[in-house]
Nucleic acid binder design. Structure first.
Lengths: 224, 224
DNA sequence: CAATCTCCTTACTCAACAGTAAACTTACTA
DNA sequence: TAGTAAGTTTACTGTTGAGTAAGGAGATTG
């Protein structure tokens, strides 16, 4: 029944640091499975193999517990992205590619983490909402920076500005979000493959647009 | 204090149909503001100017109430998209453009509806989750169809298939989702402007890719 | 072998809120 | 104008689950 501690006899004593991580581990899976509200602290405590007051002693409240989960997983995700982007090479598109690739790989590998980060954001307190917003902003800024570098490096010069880079970053991040759903319906697809498709969709278009190609809606041929 | 019914004296009697819509109207704003769980049926009833048992009589349960909100707003949104796409003209990219434009306009105009649809999806019961998923699928299919038509119409022929169209649709819908956030940070931008930028990002790139242009990550110049 | 610090538990309290029973009131209709 | 159906209310119940008080047991240090 219990996960940590011996199944029989006395519970093993564990130092706080370690216990906290165990609790958070369990909490992430439970929050992912049930959602924030449907998850009960009792269940988390039981699965973690300890009693409820421990959770409150270490994490303060249900919200504090969730926040701890959020922060840990968000840090991991952002770190994965940033690390890959930095190691990805000099050219911005290579760094962007590496970052996206790391993102999709992370999601594939840590489903529960992603569910918690992705689908539990809203309807929670100020503190939680802003923690999620911060993480998203961090990634957004990173992406916008790469897009901007890409623009700057390209021939045409200042035809696009900060606002455009931000726009593209939002579109990209949103697309990546949504493609995690697509991935779960196509288990055969590797994160790398998904990344490549997305880069092709976006980067090629951006290059063309920078070269002056513009799409505008043609006049209706049949204006009823 | 009350919104419907006279403030003084007896409450006005109202036929069921109308009352239901009033309740749903209020519920949408409350759910949008507080989130599903934090919203209480008592508050909704009070703001609607009636007593709680009415809500249960007409809508069955809190979940039923939420479901009614969801369905109504989802229908409106999907209808807006489809209507615009159908009226948008013959060429797929024009229909897609019209649909996206209608979407951004809808979100700009019905903030609460969008919040309910967008941010309250998860962590709810089977029934609710699948209602949201259905609506998204409907839009997704619509978009994928247009993308597919766009591919078919283009020169090269069958270099892309159903799966690709679905991929692009996911990316597009996700990008649109996320751009609603961008819009709220840029109140000056018109829905039409946002649509145009997005189309340029995606459609131009797609066209180029169809013509055989491919982006692949260059070999690292400095493979550490 | 105290003293005491950290780890840990049992057994509760308490408020919020979904949901309901039962009856009252207004308006239509025959 | 009695009968009835639709609309509406007051005043409850019951459960669930967050959060806590109070104290026990194992390690560590003088």
């Amino acid at each position: 029944m219990t996960v940590n501690g011996r199944t029989e006899g006395r519970r093993r004593r564990v130092p706080r640091q370690e216990r906290e991580q165990q609790i958070i581990d369990v909490a992430v899976t439970v929050f992912a499975k049930r959602g924030y509200h449907a998850a009960s602290v009792d269940e988390i405590a039981e699965l973690a193999g300890i009693s409820k007051p421990m959770v409150y002693l270490y994490l303060d409240s249900k919200e504090g517990l969730f926040l701890a989960c959020l922060r840990r997983e968000a840090d991991r995700l952002v770190a994965a992205f940033q690390g890959a982007a930095q190691a990805g090479g000099g050219a911005p598109e290579l760094r962007l590619h590496a970052g996206l690739s790391a993102f999709f790989a992370f999601v594939a590998e840590h489903r529960d983490s992603w569910v918690v980060l992705h689908r539990q954001a809203s309807e929670l307190s100020e503190a939680i909402a802003s923690a999620v917003a911060d993480a998203r902003r961090a990634v957004m800024a990173q992406v916008a920076g790469l897009v901007w570098d890409g623009i700057a490096e390209s021939a045409g010069g200042a035809r696009l500005d900060d606002e455009d880079a931000d726009f593209v970053a939002h579109a990209l991040v949103g697309a990546a979000d949504s493609l995690t759903d697509w991935m779960s319906g196509h288990p055969g697809q590797s994160p790398e493959g998904v990344t490549l498709r997305l880069m092709n969709m976006v980067w090629v278009g951006m290059g063309r647009v920078l070269e002056g190609e513009v799409w505008v809606p043609a006049e209706r041929s049949d204006p009823t």
